[in-house]
Design a protein around this nucleic acid. Sequence first.
DNA 1: ACCCAGGCCATCT
DNA 2: AGATGGCCTGGG
Length: 273
Amino acid sequence: MYKIRIKDFDLEQNMCSGQCFRWNKISDDMYDVIAFGKYLTMKQDGDEFTFSCTKEEFDEVWSEYFDLETDYGSIKNNADERDEFMSAAVKYGAGIRILRQEFFEALISFLISQRKSIPAIRTSIERICEAFGEKIADRKYAFPTPERLRTLNTEEREYLLNECGLGYRGRYILQAAEDMRFYEDGCADVFSGMSYEEALKSIMNFNGAGVKVANCVVLFSLHKLNACPVDVWIQKMIDEEYQGVKPAWMEDANAGIYQQYAFFYKRGKRGIS
DNA sequence: ACCCAGGCCATCT
DNA sequence: AGATGGCCTGGG
């Protein structure tokens, strides 16, 4: 158990923010998540949090995952107060943070996300993890490694392609696992060292990754905060709230954070469904 | 029983 | 370059 105060953080909001797919509500006031091969349960009382891990594990893994180094308070304060939509969005999603997710998990998750509802995305991901991820606790499975997904036998391959609800995206996943080999020789963290433009271009080389998917990976994994994925909700926002003209905040150095507030607000109380 | 989902790609002008 | 149709399938 580890208790800590965290500002600008809300578990329910992050679970529903659409950036991550492996958060769950497990009881009235408890949530859980699997990331970096670890299973964590979380409880919130105002700004007081109780996590199921040790302080050592929190400092080692979760502190960075939750992006605790970034001061979201000042970023929220810097939103243009004359922009009524953004002001309301910031208030509405005040506890959202941009999680620092694992690269391969983010890549596969957002390849899956195209033309799929959030519940369907979650189902596909869980099925892949259960089948090919390392077991890390009772009925809890890590996200599989690229090596695991490119060394499937015939039967496993059939399962991935036919039993995980992937449809035409199945081949994108298999090919991405294959293509990852190119980035694994030498330094492990090649993408993090790239500029936004370089990273975006490299990720779009993966088949099935276009501008939107690549921007999601760049933002939610590489944490390049100027990345601003434009999906149907953000497009709807531009059309309805800004008369079809991209608002100034989309060019901000923290555009990705503002995008999350906007997305969460525009999408409304749909939760994870 | 529909209908469409946080797009992408190939195939056209 | 820019526009348009087709795509797998599971949830609501």
